[in-house]
């Protein structure tokens, strides 16, 4: 793992471990000795098979869970709880069914006490950014899966977080929509750069989107695998030579770890 000295680390996780207590006294060891650095304005993908604790890791960074061992830092400050500096996008969208698209997106600014007009403007800007203009007055149940997740992304973006945390955001979409949404995510990210931590179990998704790919091992407790740097040009095509080479390299390696 090569390190550039002048890169600022936005998020640092040191030796994080997490143990859940299940009903009764049974302990489930989910994460073990996870260390991770996310650079400023970097698109980091955490790639791992289902049930390897990657979502838990993301929730720890989000501040929604506290690690049982180790610590997570944001800008050198210990993460103790959730905050508006980190925007979260969920796999199951988690939109407010009782609010329109506009109402969902302007929730963040509203909660942070901005005046109504400003909330509107911010929300409008991000609805346009994710390409949902004309749907402001729709309720979530009137939207397709891809559109719902656009709302989810816009909602997180509208709060102007420094870090975006995406938890398998396209896991519920069909392959076509998924590919399209990946391109959209790339476009949105390039329009307004943020530090992004993107959790997925899809290797192609990881290769299309990531600046770096951090792999996690399969069985519980989840451990950190090798980290790969993806340094070829965007936009990437799954048929590029470099793409296939790296893809092969990752599959080989993760097979070893599994």
């Amino acid at each position: 793992m090569e390190k550039q000295k002048n890169v600022h680390n936005k998020i640092v996780c040191t030796d994080i471990g997490k143990t859940f207590i299940q009903k009764g006294t049974q302990q489930v060891h989910v994460l073990e000795k996870i260390s991770l650095e996310v650079h400023d304005n970097e698109f980091l993908v955490i790639l791992g098979p289902g049930q390897c604790g990657k979502s838990t890791l993301l929730r720890i960074i989000a501040g929604l869970e506290t690690p049982t061992e180790g610590q997570a830092f944001l800008d050198g400050k210990l993460i103790t709880g959730p905050g508006p500096d980190r925007g979260l996008v969920f796999q199951s969208y988690m939109l407010f069914a009782w609010r329109t698209v506009m109402g969902n997106v302007e929730m963040g600014p509203k909660l942070n006490g901005l005046p109504k007009k400003e909330c509107r403007e911010i929300a409008k800007h991000y609805i346009d950014l994710v390409g949902l203009q004309g749907f402001e007055k729709h309720y979530p149940h009137q939207l397709s899966g891809g559109m719902k997740q656009r709302v989810g992304i816009a909602r997180a973006y509208a709060n102007k977080p420094q870090v975006m945390l995406l938890d398998e955001p396209f896991g519920q979409l069909d392959a076509q929509t998924r590919l399209f949404m990946e391109k959209e995510t790339e476009r949105i990210w390039q329009t307004e750069k943020r530090t992004v931590v993107f959790v997925t179990n899809n290797i192609d998704e990881a290769l299309i989107l990531g600046d770096r790919i951090a792999t996690m091992t399969g069985k519980l407790p989840g451990k950190m695998g090798p980290v790969y740097k993806v340094d070829f040009e965007r936009p990437r095509e799954p048929t590029d030579m470099e793409f296939l080479k790296l893809r092969h390299q990752i599959t080989e390696a993760s097979e070893l770890v599994l």
């Binding site: 508006p84 925007g87 979260l88 988690m94 407010f96 009782w98 909660l111 709060n159």
Partner: peptide
């Protein structure tokens, strides 16, 4: 109510009062 909906509010910077007003009440409607 899906507990993750509260997570949304918290990660957007809301407090307990916001959780109740923006999620609990409308979702229970």
């Amino acid at each position: 109510i899906e507990p993750e909906l509260y997570d949304v509010i918290r990660s957007l910077g809301g407090n307990r009062r916001h959780e109740i007003l923006q999620v609990s009440f409308p979702a229970a409607f």
